[in-house]
Amino acid sequence: MIPPSPVIRVSHLTKRFGAQVVVDDLSFEVAAGETLVLLGPSGCGKTTLLKTLNRLIEPNGGTIEINGRDVRQQKPEELRRGIGYVIQQVGLLPHLTVAQNVGVVPGLLGRPPAETAARTTELLNRLHLPAERFGPMLPAELSGGQQQRVGLARALAADPPVILLDEPFGALDPITRTAVRRDFRELDELRRKTVVLVTHDVTEAFELADRIMLLDKGKIQQLGPPRELLLHPASDFVRSFFQAEQLALQLRVVTLAEVQPFLPQGQPAASADTPTLPPTASVHEALGQLDAGAASAFRLADQPQVITRGQLLAAFGQALG
C-alpha cells in the first residue's frame, strides 16, 4: 500500500527568541487525514511550532510545505484562510453574532452569502447549537463550552483541508471539556482533515491522536502512535512523562485482541442480549461498556463465550506482565 502523501512537510525548522532556541531543527511530516498531537511540558515549543505553520510566527530557519507549497511563497492571510485555526481563548469577534462569526472566513474568501448561511446553519446544528436559536446571539451570551463549539464551527466553515488547534479545550471545566471533546471526536468533518493539535493534557492526547509528537526544549523526544510512546519509550524523559498516568493510558492502548490469549477458556456461552465488542476496542472501552450498561459481561465478536470484568482485568495484567 502506498502511504498517503504528506500534507504538511516540515524540515529543519528553527525558531529563536533572542538567545533562546524554542524550536530546534525539527523535521517531520503529517499525512493527509492524520491527527498529530503536539504534547509536552510548558515552554517546550509546541505552541510556537504550531504558529509557524500558519505564519503567525515566522521561523528563523527551515522550510514548511503545506499541500506541496512553501508557505513563504503565499501571502500570510491567503495561507491562513486555507487553514482552520482554533485557540484556547476562542477569540470570537464580540461585536458579531454567532452566525456572522462562523461565516467570517467564507466572507473573507468572497463566497456567496447564501452558501455561507447554509453551511453555517449545518455546522451549528451539528455542533448542538441549533442555528435558529444561537445564530443571532452575541458571543457574550454563550457559555464557555458553547463559545468553543462556535470557534470550531468557525474554523471548519470554509472547509479547509488543514486545521490547527491550540489547547482548544484547555479553558473549559472538566465536564464541559469532556462533552466538547466528544463532539469534536465524533465530527465527521474532522476525520477527513489533517489536524495538528497542541495540548499538555496526556489523556486528551491519547484520546485524539493518530500520532503524538512529544517535545521538550524545542526538540522531538519521540514521534509515533500513542501505544508506541507508552510501551516503547525512546528515553527516560518519555517514560517519566507518562509515569503518573501509566495505568490509565495502558488501558487505552491495549486492545481486546491483545488480552484474548490470556482469557480463561471454556466459559459459558453468551446469550443473545450480551453486548458484543470488536477485538480492536481498547480495554478502557470495554470497561466503560461494563460500567455504563446493565450487562455484567460482554463477548468478543466471533467468539462464543462471555467475559466478565474480573476476567478482563486479570488478563490485562498478564498481557502487560
Binding site: 500558519n54 503567525l56 484562510r81 477569540g91 470570537l92 470557534g151
Partner: peptide, 9 residues
C-alpha cells in the same frame, strides 16, 4: 480576538 482574527486570515 486579535490573534484569532489574524489566524483566520
Amino acid at each position: 480576538v486579535v490573534e484569532a482574527a489574524r489566524g483566520l486570515g
